[in-house]
Design a protein around this nucleic acid. Structure first.
Lengths: 241, 241
DNA sequence: CGTACAGGTGTACGGCGTACACCTTGCGTT
DNA sequence: AACGCAAGGTGTACGCCGTACACCTGTACG
């Protein structure tokens, strides 16, 4: 046992081992609990050993993103731009859903790595080979924003309840009082929430189908792109500014 | 002098003074340099004193968001939904541009405060009173996402150069080499960047007009919303799923 | 005059990222 | 066979962070 652990420790650390360990650790305990010390411990090594393989924590995070960008897989060739884009985004989304921490890490990244640039380049390529002008492609890329990665920036209260949570069991009366408060102070949101909760009768969650919402917005954008493309939109002429 | 400072210190701290100080401090030094200790120092007080007015740093950040949400101002009444939404978003954007830290704070917030809910409620209200169905309003709110607050989640390399930066003065040959590298590895992005850099001949920045990109995407969405509304879209029937 | 309490203080703890000097080990060269 | 060197792991330490907890102090009110 000790020998085996010893042997495991003996196969030398390298960048990939560090990165992969970081990814799975983040998957397990969440990005906010991923510290250099914790990661080192997981690898049976002293914290400073990591610095022989990554320059600092920033670079570690960048490498982690690179790692999962590698999971996305190549774009389907020879598809019309719209479905090509759609598929690629949804496939990126699958990956990102497996690594929930990646959203915040991608967002806060300041130095873009080649792997990330590569992904974005492929993305731009789909529009260009689809016949989009360079100009339109540029703006369309901006309009995609982080949706390119398959996630939306939700500002809604979706922290209400995770699947496995041990809910604190709020008494019914308090629940009712909260609902009344909500109806009084935020009537519009209340209406929406009530309707959504009604629609699917599952009790858990906020009654929103994230995947549906994502595709709804995505298709809205793609349709918009298509229209602009068809009418040969240019930044000077169209309705923009 | 000592007396005056003493006197200033004498007017007692309260939640608003703490929050306002935090906002201006974050404006000045950036959110990453805003620590409880630093803020306390700024207020001429010992760190723990702050905890008599905010429960913890999370709540401080929430309060800071509340503070600047208050700067946004009320929606214009009696305007058609589209211009009402447009104006409100752009006015939120003005505020958010004054407080660049707010973007990341809003994004990472987990407990939504009443002020934030109020803003979102007003937002939903514009669609509802504009005749949108509850259903459509719901999805439309999701599709807006953080654009509701006037910012886009940019994943582009815009950290290239801030206005006041003392640029490290990269030698021309290195610059050229980087450009060649870029053209080789990321041909599509290169095309876009080259065209954009050409368009406005300012040397600084990445050649992107953030305000234009924002409005471009915003109008794309709003037009999409309008179309769906006009054709009485419902989540069951339309083109969605 | 006494006392309660809001509000400011001091000390301390455990965690973080990481600088720096050090030690071990295995390999290519002579 | 001896050597030296670099790659890679170690130990210690520093300065920062958020905040728990016990404590003091001045003001308002009975």
């Amino acid at each position: 046992m000790t020998q085996l652990a010893e042997a495991a420790r003996r196969i030398p650390l390298n960048r990939d081992r560090v990165l992969n360990a970081a990814v799975t650790l983040a998957d397990e305990v969440g990005i906010e609990s991923l510290s250099m010390r914790r990661l080192a411990q997981e690898l049976g090594v002293v914290p400073m050993a990591l610095y022989k393989h990554v320059a600092n924590k920033e670079e570690l995070l960048g490498g982690m993103v690179d790692t999962i960008v590698g999971e996305i897989g190549p774009p389907v060739p020879d598809a019309p731009w719209k479905s090509a884009v759609r598929l690629r985004v949804l496939s990126a989304r699958q990956v990102l859903l497996r690594h929930p921490w990646a959203r915040s890490v991608i967002e806060t990244r300041t130095n873009v790595t080649p792997a990330v640039l590569g992904y974005m380049d492929g993305f731009a390529g789909m529009f260009l080979t689809g016949g989009f002008s360079v100009d339109l492609t540029h703006h369309v890329m901006h309009a995609m924003g982080s949706r390119m990665w398959g996630f939306t920036q939700e500002v809604f209260d979706d922290s209400a309840g995770q699947a496995g949570d041990q809910q604190p069991q709020v008494p019914a009366e308090v629940r009712a009082a909260m609902a009344r408060q909500m109806a009084e102070n935020f009537p519009h949101l209340f209406k929406i929430a009530a309707a959504a909760a009604h629609e699917d009768d599952s009790v858990v969650g906020n009654g929103c189908d994230d995947q549906f919402e994502f595709e709804f917005a995505l298709d809205l954008l793609l349709d918009g792109f298509e229209r602009l493309h068809q009418q040969n939109w240019t930044s000077g002429g169209g309705k923009g500014r």
